[in-house]
Design a protein around this nucleic acid. Sequence first.
RNA 1: GCCUUCAUAGCUCAGUUGGUUAGAGCAUCUGACUGUUAAUCAGAGGGUCACUGGUUCGAGCCCAGUUGAAGGCGCCA
Length: 508
Amino acid sequence: MHQYISDFANYAGKEVTVKGWIANIRKSKTNLFFSFRDGTGFVQCVASLEALGDEMFEQAKNLTLESSVAFTGNVVQDERQEGGFEVQVSSMKIYHIADGFPLAQREKDLGVKYLEDNRHLWLRKKRQWAIMRVRNQIIMGIHEFFQNEDFVQMDAPLLTGSACEGTTDLFETEFFGQPAFLSQSGQLYAEAMAMAQGKVYTFGPTFRAEKSDTPRHLAEFWMIEPEMAFYENEDNMDLIERFVKHVIGRILNRCQQELKVLERDFSKLQMVVDKTFPRITHAEAVEILTGRQEVNGRNAIQIQEQDLEEAKQRIEECKKEISERETAIKAGMKKGARKFNEAKIIALRGEIENLEHKVRNIPQWIESAKNFQHGEDFGGSDETLLTRVFDAPVMVYNWPAKIKSFYMKEVDGNPDLVKGVDLLAPEGFGEVIGGSERETDINVLIRKIKEHELDQNDFEWYLDLRRYGSVPHSGFGLGLERLVRWICNLKHVRETIPLARRYGRITP
RNA sequence: GCCUUCAUAGCUCAGUUGGUUAGAGCAUCUGACUGUUAAUCAGAGGGUCACUGGUUCGAGCCCAGUUGAAGGCGCCA
């Protein structure tokens, strides 16, 4: 039997055997310092000539990056080490010597295309390890919340015979000679189940065939869809707020180490747990977005104008620093210092490139926000601008009916609006939850199905839910990967799922 | 689908108004040194400058097309 790094607190001063892979190596004449990983964590293993003897030390010298090995040795407390321990190796067993691991460099120094091509190996890197562990805890937190609240987990079908919501592009397949589609949502089925169980939630894969190549879109992703009988939209919003706070609270409690690896700002997440989520109508959101209404003295348009100015200034600073360093290099300096300065210059050029993207994009965003009309749907940049004036996630409700799905309940006395609610995450992460109270009136529903040019025959079973004991009910859908991206503060959803399937990417 | 930017060593990138034999860091290999933690030092190998065509005495650099990538928009969760 062997031991795991995560249990080392119980083994201080004792001998253990750990089995895993070499994550990094530093060599000296009489010592080999291995950064070692076993899946549960990372620890430094020190192989000394003194402890191993000539023969085994020679063998240990052959260990390369990502070679697999079992080390036996004492667990020693050492404050200098991450995690507080190191293993002083007394013997070892080599499983396999790896040759030329393709991701030998720091993750930061590798290109995103190259990393994605090597996703099967990229997963071994520390940052990716941390993300997958946070994802796991998010999943557990989601189940924990709903199970504690007496929800029943249900599995909705993945194959459907018709394009349910009628709005999105679906992957088409074949079902015993008939056309079939991969599910884009389990919601309608969840509604049926909610009429049987009261409170239910789905947790399953979802497929969208839109050709959306953006940092927040996947073709195959995991969605959580709770559905509650006798819930109005206000109850729905209360639930969303408690739910998100619960999951993030759990991550703050359980994933300190992982968030540290990811250099995540804890205070931003703590704020989500502590603050009340603002709730604004879509009409108010438009006023804020266009800069006509301010929130706590903050103006959405002005914030962007400031960002633009700051970016421009920073570009000038970077350029100045580059020319200063170049001049200094030309004047002559020691080799070490020259290398250092050259590395700095390359980093500054990278920063300038990112800032120049920003400088090009912000004016377009401002233009789009200023000209925003009531009744429209928000674009990605609009969501970013909107959330910048708040420091907690914001819930936008009462949406224009024409941009939302047919099943959403109309606002009393105003059929142009529906009781939808979107949760927009702060820091520019945008929509992570979309939900609504569902229409209960069969006649309204039939009218809406026609208005959306859907085939009523496909929805007869759904209409039955309104024929037999129709009740007010609500629910929402959460995109798991969008939540992981937000909590981990990632640039792109490709890092939030082990093997991403998105537009232009189906391997590895 | 649209816009912007880009494509140079295994990887990340420099390469000046077009001018001899295209450079650096990391990675790999050799050696030195050191309880190291982005280790350091000395050396070596590694390139059809994305592809096709054009301009020119001369193209990594200019022009056209093709392919691919990054960021943004749209569509959407």
